[in-house]
Design a protein around this nucleic acid. Structure first.
Length: 696
DNA sequence: AGGCCGTACTG
DNA sequence: CAGTAC
DNA sequence: GCCT
């Protein structure tokens, strides 16, 4: 029995707002140093509270220093960072690509930490890893056998739950992107820029004396055109510098946040004539000014920092059903990271967090280019600074700390094991662990079996088998068996369509979803029961997890919602009848041999049979073919845009309750595919192929 | 400052 | 009603 | 977490 104090809930999201620093700003009452002789100064917003940055800038201005908000005009960059690599990264984030210039003046001792700078402020990630706790687990004598078995289970889970990209080696963002220079305009090479620790300014303010930069110099930056063509072969092109990529994953914090802030004060010069457009492209302004965008595209490939926004991005199409989302998007690896975080939100009962991550995942999955710049994320609907920062982290370090933490959290792994039991959701899974103290499946079996609801017992019994993917051929065979049974209990007018992941093209499906219909209304009435009965008799169905008949019965009893339908028309729109089944192929090698019951070795499968009246079969197919985000967005879209209530059994007007018969009163004349197209069209949506609905 | 899909079954 | 499923 |  585990300790009665299983450890508190894991990984609270913890917003990473930067603690606004207690501003050490001492406004000088002295006449102070006259800084008018300084070269143009730019304050890098990195790791700096915006108000503090403002205060510093204000102080500089008061002392007549030339301050700019355009990094391209700067000769001096003040940076609240310690290391060369980081500083260069931040500049790059602003569209300024630089390299270390080993010349021009003081090459003095390389970058070395200035003595007094111990413990910069504002740098306390405080990861709140859970510690201890884990050690307790390993003990537990006497359960060796099961422990091993369950470990296997666990691994299976993780495999199935989140198809993880192979560790992947996204090299640190040091290496090139594309595009060459656009500073062909300027004949003479731009002057070098001194990147100096912000501490310099602190000292200047404290001492009221203009101090030399040299002790604070991070590096002398020579602007360069962006490297063209990644030269993908070389993994780490980071020039010499013995600095290891970055030991502590403490990646680009609020770069975007800062970018936004940058954008504001600069408003005077949004169209300022200075040459570089890059700075503009970085502006996360909500709607990109059309003119510059056009101009950029006309510059034709070479110096466009980021690809032009696809139409759905430009038009801010919020709903994933308004765009195509292919199965293997170019940014799948990053999406997988977001998926881990989303899954952790799921396990912690954070429905809203799940929604948020689902939305941004769907958006990025629809984005047709490999991401190269955070600004590309910022312009996607459902994505903002949080996501963009995660991407920056991913790009720079090849990891996403939050995702790794979620993935490896031992408590969450246990909860996940339970969550994978069919019929067990996040709440119960967490209850099993945190309240009952169970830590593996055998704990449940031994201590709680008899108290489990029937479906959870079934889910437990076939735990591994349900987690196995079902190959397409087997899906097809099962569907055909269902069709044959339906024909047998009705007539050859039966039409079926396999929906779900299979229809989206997946090689392996988690379950089998089959829509069964018939053009004659009477034929679909009570069809589920008859079909399931037949399949049971034939030995295909071993368990019925759930049977939903709301349709047939309630449909004729009373008309839900809008009680009064004048006269003749009996709307009787059955909500869908459906059956959630456990399936097992009833024929196997050697079944007739010997005694009689050798055991059926075939795996158990989850099979859903959905019966739809022809009238609404398009809705049924649409409602059952999309990824979950696609489905939710269909409903949201129907609601917000048309004022309708969509579900897979039909569409109603929210105000009047009237049925909206997009497929006609008696269904379409063509086939099931035509019915679905009719629904798309009626909703005002372009048709999306099933494999373009892979929103996750 | 409130919303985030809509519905049905089990216990 | 809460929980789960699709 | 993002949007209205």
């Amino acid at each position: 029995m585990p300790p009665s104090t299983p450890s508190p809930s894991p990984s609270t999201p913890q917003r990473s707002s930067i603690p606004s620093t207690p501003s050490t700003l001492v406004s000088p009452r002295y006449p102070a140093p006259d800084l008018s002789s300084l070269p143009t100064v730019f304050i890098l917003a990195a790791k700096l509270a915006s108000d503090r940055r403002d205060a510093l800038a204000k102080w500089l201005v008061e002392h007549r220093a030339p301050v700019t908000y355009d990094v391209h005009k700067a000769r001096i960059v003040l940076a609240n960072v310690e290391r060369f690599a980081r500083a260069r990264l931040e500049l790059r984030g602003l569209g300024l690509w630089t390299e270390k210039a080993e010349a021009e003046g003081e090459v003095s001792g390389v970058v070395k930490s200035v003595g007094g700078v111990k413990e910069e402020r504002g740098t306390s990630p405080r990861k709140r890893m859970r510690v201890g706790e884990g050690a307790v687990r390993s003990g537990k004598a006497g359960r060796e056998g099961k422990r091993r078995r369950v470990n296997e289970d666990l691994e299976n889970d993780l495999e199935a739950a989140s198809p993880r990209p192979p560790a992947s080696t996204v090299t640190a963002g040091s290496d090139g992107e594309t595009t060459a220079s656009d500073n062909s305009i300027s004949p003479k090479p731009p002057p070098n820029i001194k990147v100096i620790k912000l501490h310099w300014l602190n000292q200047v303010m404290a001492t009221s004396a203009l101090l030399p930069y040299t002790p604070y110099l991070i590096y002398e930056a020579r602007p360069v055109s962006r490297p063209s063509t990644p030269t993908p072969a070389i993994p780490s092109t980071t020039p010499s510098t013995p600095i290891p990529s970055s030991p502590a994953p403490q990646p680009g914090l609020a770069i975007l946040q800062r970018a936004r802030e940058d954008a504001l004060p600069v408003k005077t010069s949004t169209f300022a004539p200075h040459g570089s457009r890059r700075f503009h492209t970085f502006h996360p302004t909500k709607h990109t000014p059309k003119l510059p965008a056009r101009v950029t595209t006309e510059y034709e490939g070479e110096d466009t920092d980021i690809p032009p926004a696809p139409a759905w991005v430009r038009d801010k199409l919020l709903f994933s059903c308004q765009r195509r989302t292919p199965p293997n998007p170019p940014n799948a690896e990053f999406i997988a990271q977001l998926g881990k975080i989303k899954h952790a939100r799921l396990l912690t009962d954070d429905e809203i967090g799940v929604r948020a991550y689902s939305t941004c995942i769907a958006a990025i999955a629809a984005y047709e280019y490999p991401l190269r710049h955070p600004a590309e994320i910022l312009r996607l609907p459902g994505c903002d600074t949080k996501i963009a920062n995660l991407w920056i982290e991913w790009r720079n370090t090849g990891r996403v700390a939050e995702a790794d933490a979620a993935d490896s959290d031992p408590d969450l792994q246990i909860v996940n094991t339970f969550y994978n039991i069919w019929g067990v959701g996040a709440t119960t899974a967490r209850d099993f662990f945190y309240r009952r103290g169970w830590r593996d499946l055998d704990d449940i079996v031994e201590e709680g079996w008899s108290s489990l609801p029937r479906v959870q017992q079934i889910g437990l019994k076939y735990y591994d088998e349900f987690l196995d993917g079902i190959p397409r051929a087997e899906v097809e065979a099962i569907a055909e068996t269902i069709r044959a049974a339906a024909v047998r209990v009705r007539d050859p007018g039966i039409e079926i369509l396999v929906v779900g992941g299979y229809r989206r093209g997946k090689e392996y499906s988690g379950d089998v979803d089959v829509i069964v219909s018939h053009r004659e209304l009477a034929m679909t009435h009570n069809l589920v029961v008859d079909v399931v009965g037949a399949l049971e008799d034939e030995g295909w169905v071993t368990h019925t997890l759930l049977l939903s008949l709301a349709a047939s019965e309630r449909g004729q009893a009373t008309l839900p919602f809008k009680a009064r339908v004048p006269g003749g028309r009996r709307t009787g729109f059955d909500t869908l009848d459906k059956a959630l089944l456990v399936w097992q192929d009833s024929v196997w090698e050697g079944m007739e041999e010997g005694g009689k019951k050798a055991k059926n070795p075939n795996p158990h499968r989850r099979v859903d049979i959905i019966v739809s009246p022809w009238r609404t079969v398009g809705c049924a197919v649409l409602g059952w073919s999309g990824g979950t985000t696609f489905q939710r967005d269909i409903r949201r879209y129907a609601n917000k845009v048309r004022g309708w209530k969509f579900d897979s059994s039909g569409i109603r007007d929210r105000r009047t309750g009237e049925v909206v018969a997009l497929e006609g009163e008696r269904g379409v004349r063509g086939g099931i595919g035509d019915a679905e197209r009719a629904v798309f069209e009626g909703l005002g949506l372009f048709y999306r192929e099933p494999w373009e609905r892979c929103t996750g």
